[in-house]
Design a protein around this nucleic acid. Structure first.
Length: 814
RNA sequence: GCCGAUGUGGUGGAAUUGGUAGACACGCUGUCUUGAGGGGGCAGUAGCAAUAGCUGUGCCGGUUCAACUCCGGCCAUCGGCACCA
């Protein structure tokens, strides 16, 4: 055995890691282009906001994607693993105000710092694809696309009640309000009626919902569920109540089976019909609307007023009173409901308060003796004319058909999803490419004028939207007629940028296209990794955008992300690491102390990916010790390699079997199960076994060396620096190949002897080793012969003997 | 209230198709090495009990020769939505 390089006895990560990282970076080792001969694999982590410092959550996220990317490279895939910066957003503006810096400089310096930290962790990115969402080259395309959508009628401006964040001083989308608070500022959200830009995500409600069925195979259940909930499809019917010859009220219900239980109609406070009511009703409605504006969360007491109007029940022809009620939402369904107090809690509460008749039409079969006043479940229809005796499901179908046949209404669907509000009253974002001409026209700017760049000379000392306050920026002229015009000073929600970056990564530097043709080779992303907090924010928007791009003819696929992994939070002392709690572990200090391989190993080993990860200094130590042991073992093998002439062939085979089983298992774990913590366990076990056989000294050193080399290969995705260094000094040829993943040798998966468990009535009584070629009959006989087994059989009858191949024998006695 | 997920030693967790529960690690205990500390080695570590044996994967029941795994019903924890008709 010739040894090429010297290997030091002591593992010194500080010395080896820097050298290897520089080599990777300078030689663009992970640069990637289309290669039709290879299987493509697009591995992506949610790109970071450049806050200035990498935290443990980032480290975990990016380590996971790096491990997956490196594994796929080793099995010969063409791997796209890019990184970029979600660089627009409020923190830059706030920092600028506080420290009197420009948001641009602040952002750029943060990116530099974080890029260095990413390099310290040895992530295998194609750095040539780095993108920056605040660069005009990027946001130009967003403006271009905005204009396309505007012309299609998919973006529009409308005055409506929107969420106002009083701390960040901007409007927020519904998805960005969490528990009544702003997603970033945490401020209590107020309702304001202002004119805002919206994008018609609701046009895609049905498809966004339907395609969940397709992606759910490789997406976590909870995310699928949250999106399903958020889109919120309800099936039912719309029904028309005549008010007068020319006026109607349309109501939406999901319970057509309760049609005969309607005793009132309730409409929302901004319903069209209110215009025709008395002044007192109008005043009341306005007070309800004001109440809604004040607070969006907290529940209010049910409240309403009779309008004096009646609707005619289309089937019974009864006069049904119409009320304005504060529990009817504006903007959902038709803004009006049919009140069925016997079978809906809110309707019941309302009817009690205003002495409205309560008519039971559904009999509860499960609780016949119960005399509940309200029953919201399904049952058998009563008091329902010709539908009496039907069960709820059949009745609903029949009633919908009856209603449609008589033109009283129609089958209908409703969604909770609202259009996405995309304008923000902030500076550090993508300018909306719209101008307001002096003749009152609102038109998009011409493509040739793009990008509409953000001005750099901004005065933050005045409060309000800096673009609006800028002395010259917003004044322009119309390219068509030369008329004077004023620019839109709102900017786009930063979720706009992150909705399509995964497509831009495919052709990041294309000057002529938003997304080039290569995207159809790379997309969809094969594995996408990020936090659960984006379940209905970014992950919904990105799915929507992908469909917009498809319908514009730019992309061919339907969904951006084939599979999704939501990694758990990193905790310390039971809670999320945060500055205010003072429980932060700084990745850079840790790398300095142990090296990045230890940090990577720990975050992979300490918990399954989806679980939260409780920080443990002891655990980190343990990982560091493992790497030391790995190194020292390599050193010993290299320097104390021995040839053994009278080796123990049985032990040799044992080691081979352990090795090949390990290769099989970790291949499955990396590739199919994406269970990375168990990869580490298996590698630890293998090293323990190698050490055991070295100690025993029964096997030829070359076999030990072989097993060790394979261990280095399978560990390489997780701890690439130490593996690279060891493979150099021990001459592991495979590491240099494009396809370097070891294959399990099928000849060494099973040994000749196997352990069999012998049970009597399902309880283990004996464990024994048998020859693999032993016949079933013989094994059964053998099982019966053991005294430990006989003892439990006694003089009872052996009813049957079950034999599970190569696993166990169960003797059933009675 | 609705929807969903999860429940295994002191701790993180493993058990991939119903077939040896607790792999791998952390921690702890004993012990050896050292002047001491660190580091390292060896042995032990689900509970009760004596080495026999019994019990044990949130609880109750069921299916099965066999259940952490499947089914039914509870309980607890976490997450999402929440006047959505």
């Amino acid at each position: 055995m010739k040894l090429v390089r010297k290997m030091k006895k002591i593992y010194n990560p500080a010395e080896i890691e820097k050298k290897i990282q520089d080599y990777w970076y300078k030689n663009k080792i992970f640069k990637v282009e289309i290669d039709s001969k290879k299987n493509k694999f697009y591995c992506l982590s949610m790109f970071p906001y450049p806050s200035g410092k990498l935290h443990m959550g980032h480290v975990r996220n990016y380590t996971i994607s790096d491990v997956i990317a490196r594994y796929h490279r080793m099995i010969g895939d063409n791997v796209l693993h890019p990184i970029g910066w979600d660089a627009f957003g409020l923190p830059a503006e706030n920092a600028a105000i506080e420290n009197n810096l420009s948001p641009k400089d602040w952002t750029n310096s943060n990116i530099n710092k974080m890029k260095n930290q990413l390099k310290l962790l040895g992530f295998s990115y194609d750095w040539d694809r780095e993108i920056l969402t605040c660069s005009p080259e990027y946001y130009k395309w967003e403006q271009w696309f905005f204009i396309k959508l505007f012309k299609k009628g998919l973006v529009y401006k409308k005055e409506s009640l929107v969420n106002w964040d009083p701390i960040d001083k901007t409007v927020l989308a519904n998805e960005q309000v969490i528990d009544g608070k702003g997603w970033r500022s945490g401020a209590n959200i107020e309702k304001k009626k202002i004119s805002q830009w919206f994008i018609k995500i609701t046009d895609y409600s049905q498809e966004l919902l339907k395609n969940l069925e397709v992606i759910k195979e490789f997406w976590p259940d909870n995310v699928i569920n949250m999106q399903k909930n958020w889109i919120g499809e309800s099936n039912g019917m719309e029904l028309v109540f005549k008010i007068s010859v020319e006026k109607n009220i349309n109501v939406f219900t999901t319970r057509p089976d309760t049609l005969f239980g309607v005793t009132f109609i309730a409409i929302a406070a901004d319903h069209d019909l209110i215009d025709q009511c008395d002044l007192s009703i109008k005043k009341f409605s306005r007070s309800i609307l004001n109440e809604m504006n004040e607070k969006s969360s907290s529940k209010k007491e049910i409240n309403g007023v009779f309008t004096g109007l009646y609707g005619i029940h289309p089937v019974t022809n009864k006069k049904i009173p119409v009320y304005v009620a504060n529990y009817i939402l504006t903007g959902y369904g038709t803004g009006a409901i049919m009140g069925v107090p016997a079978h809906d809690y809110r309707d019941y509460e309302f009817a009690k308060k205003y002495n409205i008749e309560i008519v039971k039409v559904i009999k509860n079969l499960d609780h016949l003796d119960h005399k509940d006043d309200v029953y919201t479940g399904e049952g058998i229809l009563i008091n329902s004319d010709k539908f009496n005796g039907f069960n709820s499901k059949d009745a609903s179908k029949s009633i919908i058909k009856f209603i449609e046949d008589n033109s009283f209404g129609k089958i209908a669907k409703n969604y909770k999803l609202r259009d996405w509000g995309i304008s923000r009253q902030r500076y550090w974002g993508c300018p909306i490419p719209i101008i307001y001409r002096e003749d009152g026209m609102m038109i998009p700017v011409d493509e040739s004028e793009l990008p509409i760049k953000l001005p750099d000379d901004i005065d933050f000392s005045v409060s309000g939207n800096p673009l609006d306050n800028h002395p010259t920026w917003k004044y322009t002229t119309c390219f068509k007629k030369g008329l004077k015009a004023v620019r839109e000073t709102d900017t786009l929600d930063t979720f706009f940028e992150s909705s399509w970056y995964q497509a831009r990564f495919c052709t990041p530097n294309d000057p002529d296209n938003m997304v080039g043709e290569d995207a159809n080779y790379w997309l969809p992303v094969d594995v996408y990794i990020g936090g659960i907090e984006h379940a209905v924010l970014h992950l919904l928007y990105a799915r929507f955008f992908h469909k917009l791009l498809r319908d514009e003819g730019i992309l061919k696929s339907n969904e951006p992300f084939k599979s999704l992994i939501t990694q758990g939070m990193v905790l310390k002392d039971g809670s999320k690491m945060s500055k205010s709690k003072g429980n932060i572990v700084d990745p850079e200090n840790l790398i300095e102390k142990y090296g990045s391989d230890t940090v990577r190993l720990f975050v992979i080993f300490a918990a399954p990916i989806e679980n939260s990860l409780e920080w443990s200094d002891h655990g980190v130590e343990g990982c560091y010790k493992f790497l030391n042991k790995l190194w020292l073992t390599g050193y010993k093998i290299k320097n104390e390699l021995y040839v053994k002439n009278n080796q123990d062939l049985i032990d040799e085979k044992k080691l081979k079997i352990i090795l090949n089983k390990t290769i099989m298992k970790v291949t499955d774990d990396y590739g199919k199960r994406i269970s990375l913590n168990t990869v580490v366990s298996s590698c630890m076990e293998l090293l323990n076994n190698i050490l055991k056989f070295m100690e025993l000294g029964t096997i030829d050193g070359r076999e030990i060396l072989h097993a060790y080399k394979q261990l280095i290969l399978i560990l390489n995705p997780i701890t690439p620096h130490i593996c690279y260094e060891i493979s150099n000094s021990m001459n592991i040829e495979e590491m240099k190949l494009t396809e370097s993943w070891p294959k399990a040798n099928k000849n060494f998966i099973k040994s000749d002897k196997i352990f069999i468990v012998i049970q009597v009535n399902g309880k283990i009584r004996k464990k024994t080793e048998i020859n693999i070629h032993c016949s079933e009959e013989k094994i059964k006989q053998l099982a019966l012969s053991f005294p430990e087994v006989k003892k439990y059989i006694g003089n009872k009858d052996v009813k049957k003997i079950i034999y599970i191949k190569e696993k166990l024998v169960n003797i059933v006695v009675a």
